[in-house]
Design a protein around this nucleic acid. Sequence first.
RNA 1: GGGCGGAUAGCUCAGAUGGGAGAGCGCAGCCCUUACAAGGCUGAGGUCACAGGUUCGAAACCUGUUCCGCCCA
Length: 943
Amino acid sequence: MYKHGISITETYSPQGIESKLYNFWEEKSFFKPDPDPQKPPYCIVIPPPNVTGSLHMGHALNATLQDILIRWKRMLGYSALWIPGTDHAGIATQNVVERQIMAEGHNRYQLGRSNFLQRVWQWKESCGGKIIEQLKRIGASCDWSRLRFTMDEGLSRAVKEVFLKLFEEGLIYRDLKLINWCPRCHTALSDLEVEHEETEGKLYYIKYPLKEDSTQFITVATTRPETMLGDTAVAVNPEDKRYKNMIGKILILPLINREIPVIADSAVDMEFGTGAVKVTPSHDFNDAEIAQRHNLPNVCVIDEEGKMTDEAGKYRGMDRYEARKRIIADLEELGLLEKTEKHKHAVGHCYRCKTVIEPFQTVQWYVKIKPLAEEAVKVVQEGRIRFIPEGWVNNYYAWMRDIKDWCISRQLWWGHRIPVWYCAKCKTEKGIEQGDLIEILFYKPITLNGKEIWGGTYNELRKIGITKEEIEQRAKIIKIPKEIFHFASYYEPTSCPKCGNEEIIQDPDVLDTWFSSALWPFSTLGWPEETEDLKRFYPTNVLVTGFDIIFFWVARMIMMGMKFMKEVPFRDVYIHALVRDAKGQKMSKSKGNVIDPLVMIEKYGADAFRFTLAAFAAQGRDIKFSEDRVEGYRHFANKIWNAMKFMMNFYNLRTKGEVTLEELNLFTNKWILSKLSDTIEETNKALESYRFNDAAGAIYQFLWHEFCDWYIELSKVILYSESEDKEETVNCLFYVFENTIKLLHPFMPYITEEIWLNILKKEHSLMISSYPTKDLISRDEEALEKMEYIMQAISGVRSIRGELNISPSLNLEVFIKPLSINAEKVLSEGYTFILKLAKAKTLKISKDIVRQKGSAVSVKRDFEIYIPVKEMIDIQQEKKRLLKELQRAETEIKFLNKKLMNEDFIKNAPKEVVERDKEKYEELLIKSDKIKENLKVLEELKD
RNA sequence: GGGCGGAUAGCUCAGAUGGGAGAGCGCAGCCCUUACAAGGCUGAGGUCACAGGUUCGAAACCUGUUCCGCCCA
C-alpha cells in the first residue's frame, strides 16, 4: 500500500492487465476514427490475412508496425482509421473444408456445389477469422466495426462491378493458352502462384530415328521424357553446323511412331544437351512459342489429373511419373536411350500444395495487363507513391516491365463466381448450335432407363431429359470452347440477351482471390457506393506489408486504384522485413522452428513482444528473431514499472501537472527536460521516416539510461532532503515521466495505459491523449553543460572505485581540484549530487587543494579528482591503471597530431572539424601531462 | 544466365547526406546502496570480409574478388 492509497504489484505482470485494458478501449470506441471533420484523416488498410490463417511472426510484425503508426497519428490529432479484415483464400480454404469432408468419407462432388459452399460458409463462421482474435491480443487498435471479408456482400459487389467494367472495355478476355495447372488443386494458377525450386533431376538423351534411314538418329535431351509422346517436332538452331543438313527431314517418334519434322528455330540453345530439342507444344511454354512460329499441331498427352491421355497410346491412364519410368524402360529396351545425366533445374510447384505444376492447355480468363501496368508504373515514377525502403522500386519496375496477362479464373468452387453466361441455343459462326460444343462430365453417373450417363454435350444431356439444374449440380467438368458466345451480367440473367432462350449456363469458374484483394483499399471503404468513408479516407496513407506480395498485391492494388478511383490507393508503401528464426532460417512448420507469437505474448506480455519487433525492424534487413531479446524488453517494462513505483512515494507532494524550463531552478531538472525534448524530437522524426528501431531505441535510451540511471538517482538527493527544490523536482519528475509514457504508448500500449489510467488516475485514456511534439519543451544548453561536469565527476570517482576494486560500501574522501572558474562554480553547485552519487564520505572542492601522497587520480578536462587510497590499494595496480589511461591518451595525441600537421587537412576540412580536433588535441596534451605528473607521485610513494 | 541485398564486438544487429565505431544479450570484477538482482556500478572485447581506387580524411563512395541470402528466367 502506497501513500496515495494504491497498492502496486512488486513487478509488472502483463497477464490480466492486457485484456482488461483492451476491452476498455474497445468499449469506449477509441478504435473508431474521430468524426470531427476538423481533424485530418489518417488511414491504413490491413493486408488481409487468409481467413484460414493463424497469427504468425510475419503478421505480428506487420500488425505491430501498423498499430504503432495508427496510435501515434491518433495521438497527434488525426482522425485515424485502421481497417481490418480477411481474405477468402480460395484454394487454401477450399482445401481445408475438402479435407474435413474427406474425413467424413465424402468428397465435394458428392455434396454438390451449393451444399459445399454452405459448408465452407459454416466453417468460416465457426473457425475462420481466428486470426482476428489473435490480432486483438497484440493490441491492434483496428476499428472492428468496419471489419471486412473479401466474400462479404459489399466486396462481392465491388468485384462484380470491376469485372464487368473491365470486360466491357475489353480488358478481360477469354483465351485458349498454355497455363500453369496444379493437378492436385485442379485449377489454373497465375504465373506468380508458381514457385520455382531448384531440383536435382536427370537429363535423358533419347534417339529419334530418321524416317529415310532408320539407322540414323537425332539425339534429343530432355528432363521430361513422358512428354515425348506429345512431340510434334524436333528443333535445332539454324546456325548449328551439326544439324544443318537435317533441317526439314522427317523423324519417327519412338513408341508412338508419329512422323515429326526437324525444324530450325533460333531460340534453341546450341549449348544445351545435344543442341537438338524435342518440341511438345502442349506441355512446355517454350515449345508452345516455337510451335506457334512454325504452325505445329498440339498433341495433349497429360490430362488435368496429371495422368496420361488417350493420345498416349499404351501409357494411357498412367500417372505422369509412372509413365516416365515405363517410357524410359521401353526406350532402353529398344536401344533408343543413349544415356542419362544428372541435371539441376528449376521445377515449378503450386504455391499452395507444392505439387509439381503441369503446363496445360485450357481456356481461361485473362486481364490484359499492359494498359493497367503503364499507369501503375507512372504514378510511382512521378513520386505519387513512395516505396520505403526505396530499393524496392527497382523490383517493382522490373516486374512491371515483363508483366504478362493475368490469368484470373480458377477451377474452384469457393470464390467470386465469374459473372458470365453461355447460351446453348445460339449458333457459332460455322452454324453449330453451341450446346453441341459444351461438354459436361459428371462426377457420378445418372441412371436413366437402366443406362449410366457419365456426361456428354449439353444438348445431348438436355435431350434425354436431364434438367439444367441437374447438369450444373452434378458436373465435375464443364468444357466450354473459346469461341462460344457469352455475355456478362451483374444480375443473374434468366435468358440469353441475343436469342432470348433460357438455355443458358453460368461459367463454372471463380476469380483469383487476388482479384478481390486488389480492390481492398477502396472496396473496404464502401466502393462502389460513394460513402463518407471513401470520400474521407481514400487515398489511404500507407500500406505496410512484406516484400513477398509486392507483385501479388501491391502492384495490382495500384493498377486497380488508378483504374477505378483515378487516384493512388496509398501514398507510401512501407516494406518490412521477413521474420526468421535465430539462425536466420525461414520459419516453417516442417523445420519445426516456428515461434508462436501468442506464446511470446503469453510469456512476456504483448508490450515486450511488440517492442522487440519494433526495435528489430531496421529497414532493409531480415529479422532474426530471438527470444532473449523479448526477455530483455520485458526487463525494460519492469524497469518502467519500478521507476513508477519509486515515484509514487512522492505522488502526494505533486502540486502541478505541467512545468516549464523557465520556472525551474535546479539544473538537474532543466537537464532532464532538455533531454526529454531531444527524445521527443528524435522519436517523432524517426516515426515520420518509418525508422521504427530508431524511435524505439531513442525512448529506451532515454527512459533507462537518462531518466532512471541519472535523473532518478539525482532526484533522490533532493527528495530525501528538505530542499526547497523538492516541490519542483516532484513536479518535474512526474511531468517528464508522463510525457515519456506518452511517447512510449504506441510501442507499449498496455503498461503505459495501466500506469496512466490506473496508477496515475488520469481522467482520460492515454491512447486518446496528445502525443508530445518538439514544440512542447526546448533545451537549456547551460544545464546540459553543467550536467556534463557533474556526470564526469561522479563517473570519475566510480571509475577509480571500480578499477581499483574498492568496495562500494567503503566511503571515500574525495578531493576535486577545479582548473577553471567555471569548473569551480559548476562543481560547487553540484556538490551534494557528487557527494551522494559518488558515495563519498567527504568531498572537498577547491582550487587550492594539494594532492596528497598515495592518491588515486582521475584527470578531466578542467578539473582533477584525487582520492587518497594509500591504505586501501596496491600501488602497482593504480600505476597500471594510470599507464593504461596514459597510453590511450597518447595514441590519440599521435593520431591528432598527424592530422593537424597535414596542411591539406587544415585547408580542406570544414572549420568546425579542424577546431574540434585542435581543442581535443590540446585537452589531451594537458591530460597526458597530468597523468605523467601523477605517475611521478606514485613513484615517490614507493619510498 | 539476369537482377537485388548482406558481410561491423563471442552472438543478434544499429551506424541519414564521408570527419577513425555504438546498442542489446553474453563475458569478467565489485555490490542484496531504502524503485528495481528482471537490478546497480566498473571493465574487457573490433586491421568494420579481402584487394585496389577516389579523397586532406572511407565502415560509409567507386572497381574487382570471396562467401552467404533472396528474386526473376
